[in-house]
Design a protein around this nucleic acid. Structure first.
Length: 1031
RNA sequence: GCCCGGGUGGCGGAAUGGUAGACGCAGCGGACUUAAAAUCCGUUGACCGCAAGGUCGUGAGGGUUCGAGUCCCUCCCUGGGCACCA
């Protein structure tokens, strides 16, 4: 392969139009193009047509009553200084094709473009250039627009805006206030990476090896107040409504993943300090020995339903008596009056459940069903998705930051013992505090943790288990504490192995698993040949002889009390109900999704419209005082105390509160995702000064019918925008629950990029296997030193092909068609320019054919054309069908091939049948040009005018296919013998099954293959094939 | 580890369970040209065969079916996302 994309750059020169003297062109007075081109000469007409489109204001949005609407939208781009590459065009061109077709089909089309202008990239670049971001962004956006225009994208620029304009962000602030009033925006302390020397918050990237990148000081976590949006309130709806939208399944899966719903049980565990509670090591298991009590017997009796309802009261009293007798502190007026539990069985279950808890030393207040904290005791909550495995708990783990850790320490201190333990716990907490997120989640890292000197009571069997703290339990998820089941959870298993904690088997693994997971130890001691039953015995003795936890939902439980023999589903239900019944906890849905951190301590963002009174009370800036404008200042570099640069601008900070008192403004700004969470609504009514939008306009246009952009925004932007839309829907401000009905992700465009091997001593960046070099460097190095890779086109990689280059060398339409044709829309593309030769050639052949047939073109063909189809008409109507379907279903590559095939067929037919003057040819010619129009609009308009048409193809009607005309009258039928193709026969399209069978059997080739065989069956698929089954 | 994609000629790719390789690139042969470029025509999955024709062939192996690139199971490779989320 050529290592240089431009090596094969066309050497075609912009020679003056070589018009065919035989076809002098139209004689009309309209002066667009006096010469008819017989080949694709983009420089002769493309720019001129773009000018005409602009002069005619062709793409201004039409909002006519009675027409269907179509809203086609591309992702809101941040205009970078690098400008667009042909990679970006892979997004804009297909959307443009769809929108152009929709308009020609009679839709009101909204196809806008604007710019996401706030944010860190812009700010950082402006700081570097010592300029202000606003004019810089203006300039970049202008470049984007020029480039988009250059490739002929049909945007309605009259609706364009930038998110940094006060007339826009005024309404971003207005939506912020709406969220605030609904309780969906709040401020709370959050942990950030903090350098105590520089007194600044650091981004994750600024922390290297736990040290501040600049001064080498160990970085700490520090809580500073941050603004959040409460997206977690919408977690379930964000999950559910994914079912109703037409998005790539991959993106939906990523969102589901991100939201991370899990169903489980959250329950309390009691903390004990003295080792008096029965421990795991004591051999009196529930259901045996001591547990084989009268109560257990009674319970079995209940379960067996050996007593009837009429006697319930008496039996309950009996149980009460026995409970009392067993010194269990049940203080209830009457078990029979418990609300919500009707049957005797339920009541007795309740009593039994409590008895179980009582045994483990807990006391109850039956009046409110809550477990009352033992005055001397502590409890903490754990969340688990595998409550069925609760009998396998052998330890509990608290996140190091868990507040219970403080209480445990305090308890130790009160007792004046466990000095060493306290020190170890404190030291571990300090260590974890210094760790960065990256370190803490580093791959393949050993489990660490410290025993707290206290125990938790497993309510299922009353056993105490040690409580550890370990950083593999995260404070931010669930309750920050877990019940650890090493037999059924890989992380817990690793931890148990690491610290010599027992592993209690909960299931019997299958033989394959036992064989595959025997540890080296087992093998080296000569037990390699153990028979399966022995392997199982060994496992049951000590699961730690094996390499991993056995995780299954399909195996019956062992050693699980009443739940023994049940599988995941049944046991979870049973234990969940039990835990709820005894007020220990409840079944719960947990989400991984966290609230959306919106605060940025930076200048270049939308100000948060809040101020504080003298006592710090928070107040919204009244709506009629919005926007809170960003002050226009010279210096806006981040301050060194970690607060926003805005906090140093007195004129901004000092303000009058809505109450008329002196106040202080909020100086955080909003992250850029706020701006892009509603811009699609503003496009419906972009210049409204009174409202964010007129509801009527939004009602007309929303939802976005087709939304096109890269998959990299799968969870951020696309989730936030859905969230805001739902909030606005709930407020009655928009009529849709979901903003983007159909989403499509274009594939990436990759450029061929040179790298060299690292020199000795050089280090590589993470994820890189070579050092990026320029093409010049690559050319200078000996061949063996350089290797080439396909990586995403970007200016920093130096592998960009710009639209300017491509248009200059091949023409805008050739570029457009190539981008469509090169691969399926969603596939990545390894960009070379060879392909543009192909699409340019194709356009050349179109020009040639049209110029040759134009003299015979009859604009009045419609009134002259016969009903009957001929080959030309059939090809025409088939192509209309294909092109229309292909564009609709985002198969742009086959849309272009359909046009190519159509052209080839017309060329063939033209050579075959010389009657170029039939109306069918006029129809074909016109159709070809119109079908070409969305993909190659410049050429289509040029050809259109060369046929003597006024105006633009954009205003012409999209051709309609007549299915009758698209149908073949003769078909080639495949004939198979035993599924293998042996012959084809040509038959009328309406041939009967019988005729097909007869003709197939009559084929000589088929007969040859049937020799010596008996025909058993003949399968006939009308119009398609005949399969003769014989043996 | 988990969750999504994707593996089809030299290359990009096409193919509602029904003739695998459309369309294009590159290659080869030819026409035009003093020549080249451009353009046009033909040809191009592999193997066997003079030909007619045959055999094989969609990452690997099984299965369902009259018939599988397409559906099911197992596995391999590859791109992406998530990842100590209980």
């Amino acid at each position: 392969m050529s290592s240089e994309p431009w090596a094969q750059r066309s050497r075609r020169e912009a020679t003056p139009s070589a018009s065919n003297p035989n076809f002098p062109g139209r004689s009309g007075s309209r002066g667009y193009n006096e010469l008819m081109l017989d080949r694709y000469e983009p420089k002769q007409f493309e720019e001129a047509w773009r000018k005409r489109w602009e002069d005619a204001d062709l793409f201004r949005t039409r909002e006519e009553e009675g027409r269907p609407k179509f809203y086609g939208l591309d992702f809101f781009p941040y205009p970078s200084g690098a400008g667009l590459s042909v990679g970006h065009c892979r997004n804009y061109i297909p959307t443009d094709v769809l929108c152009r077709m929709k308009f020609m089909q009679g839709y009101n089309v909204l196809h806008p473009m604007g710019f996401d202008a706030f944010g860190l990239p812009a700010e950082n670049e402006a700081i570097k250039r010592k300029s202000h971001p606003a004019p810089m962004i203006d300039q970049y956006a202008a470049t984007y627009k020029r480039q988009m225009d250059l490739v002929g994208i049909s945007y309605d620029w009259s609706r364009s805006f930038k998110s940094c304009e006060p007339s826009y962000y005024r309404w971003t602030q207005w939506i912020f206030e709406l969220l605030y009033k609904k309780g969906l925006a709040y401020r709370k302390n959050a942990e950030v990476n903090w350098c105590p020397k520089d007194k600044t918050a650091l981004a994750n990237e600024e922390v290297v090896g736990g040290l501040c990148e600049r001064c080498g000081t160990p970085v700490e976590k520090k809580a500073i107040p941050q603004w959040y949006f409460k997206i977690t309130d919408y977690a379930q709806r964000l999950l559910d409504d994914l079912d109703d939208i037409d998005w790539p399944e991959g993106i939906k899966a990523m969102q589901r993943n991100w939201i991370g719903r899990s169903e489980g049980v959250q329950f309390r565990m009691r903390v004990v300090f003295d080792p008096g509670t029965p421990s795991l090591d004591s051999d009196d298991r529930a259901g045996s020995g001591e547990g084989e009590s009268e109560l257990e017997a009674l319970k079995r009796e209940v379960a067996a339903e050996t007593f009837a309802d009429p006697d319930a009261e008496a039996r309950i009293n009996e149980i009460k008596g026995k409970l009392d007798a067993a010194s269990m502190e049940v203080h209830s007026s009457d078990l029979g009056e418990l609300p919500g539990f009707d049957s005797a069985k339920e009541k007795i279950d309740m009593a039994m459940a409590r008895a179980n808890i009582e045994k483990s030393g807990r006391s109850f207040d039956l009046d409110d069903f809550e477990v009352v904290k033992n005055p001397d005791g502590l409890t903490f909550e754990v969340f688990t998705t595998r409550i069925d495995t609760i009998y396998g708990v052998t330890f509990a783990v608290l996140a190091p930051e868990h507040p219970m850790v403080d209480q445990i320490i305090a308890e130790h201190q009160r007792n004046g013992d466990q000095r060493a333990t306290i020190d170890a716990v404190q030291a571990y907490r300090e260590k974890v505090k210094r760790e960065t997120e990256t370190e803490r989640t580093a791959e393949g890292r050993e489990k660490t943790g410290v025993f707290t000197g206290s125990y938790a009571v497993n309510p299922a069997n009353g056993r105490r288990v040690p409580i550890w703290i370990a950083d593999y339990v995260l404070m931010g998820y669930g309750t920050g504490a877990i019940m650890a089941v090493p037999a059924g959870d890989q992380r817990d298993f690793e931890f148990a192995v690491q610290f010599g904690i027992p592993v209690a088997p909960i299931q019997e693994p299958d033989e394959d698993w036992l064989a595959a997971n025997r540890s080296a130890d087992l093998q080296s001691t000569g037990t390699d040949g153990v028979v399966p039953s022995q392997a199982l015995q060994r496992y049951l003795q000590d699961p730690k002889l094996f390499k991993a936890a056995f995780i299954s939902k399909d195996k019956p439980l062992i050693n699980a009390g009443e739940q023994t023999g049940m599988k995941f589903e049944e046991a979870s239900k049973s234990l969940g109900e039990w835990i709820e019944a005894c007020g220990l906890g409840q079944r719960k849905v947990q989400y991984r999704l966290r609230d959306w951190l919106i605060s940025r301590q930076r200048y270049w963002g939308c100000p948060i419209p809040v101020c504080y009174g003298k006592d710090g009370e928070m107040m919204l800036i009244p709506e009629n005082q919005l926007p809170v404008e960003l002050p226009d200042v010279e210096s806006y570099e981040p301050s060194d105390d970690g607060s926003s640069p805005l906090s140093r601008i007195q004129d901004f900070v000092n303000c009058t509160t809505p109450e008329g008192t002196l106040g202080r403004r909020e100086t955080d700004t909003m992250g850029g995702f706020a701006c892009s969470s509603w811009y699609f609504l503003r496009f419906c009514d972009p210049h409204n000064d009174d409202k964010a939008w007129d509801p009527k306009r939004v009602e007309h246009w929303m939802p976005v019918d087709t939304y096109v952009g890269g998959a990299e925004h799968a969870v951020m932007h696309l989730l936030y925008a859905r969230f805001w839309t739902k909030v606005l829907f709930d407020a009655g401000l928009v009529p849709v629950k979901e903003p983007f009905q159909r989403l499509r992700n274009q594939g990436q465009v990759l450029g061929y990029t040179p790298y060299r091997k690292p020199h000795p001593g050089e280090t590589l960046d993470v994820g890189e296997d070579g050092i990026l070099i320029s093409r010049e460097e690559a050319a200078a190095l000996p061949e063996g030193e350089v290797f080439w890779k396909w990586v995403r086109m970007s200016k920093s990689k130096g592998n960009v092909v710009t639209p300017e280059e491509a248009v200059d060398a091949f023409g805008a339409d050739a570029l457009r068609l190539f981008e469509l044709f090169v691969a399926p829309f969603d596939a990545d593309v390894e960009w070379t320019n060879d392909g543009m030769n192909g699409t340019a050639r194709f356009l050349g052949r179109v020009f040639k054919l049209v110029s040759e047939l134009a003299p015979n073109y009859d604009p009045t063909w419609r009134s002259k054309i016969p009903d009957a189809a001929d080959e030309v008409r059939r090809a025409t109507h088939k192509t209309i069908q294909r092109a229309t379907d292909d564009i609709e279903r985002f198969a742009f590559n086959t849309y272009v091939s359909a046009l190519m095939e159509f052209l080839n067929e017309l060329n063939d037919l033209r050579r075959k049948g010389p009657d170029a003057s039939s109306p069918s040819w006029s129809e074909a010619l016109e159709t070809l040009v119109l079908l070409l129009a969305p993909g190659a609009p410049h050429s289509a308009d040029e050809l259109w005018s060369s046929l003597g048409k006024e105006g633009f193809t954009y205003h012409a009607s999209w051709p309609l296919s007549d299915p009758k005309l698209a149908k073949d009258d003769v078909l080639t039928v495949a004939v198979q013998v035993n599924g293998k193709l042996r012959d084809t026969v040509t038959l009328p399209a309406d041939a009967s099954k019988e005729l097909m069978e007869t003709e197939a059997l009559a084929s000589g080739k088929v007969q040859a293959h049937l020799e010596g065989l008996t025909v058993r069956k003949v399968i006939v698929i009308p119009g398609k094939l005949v399969n003769i089954v014989a043996n």
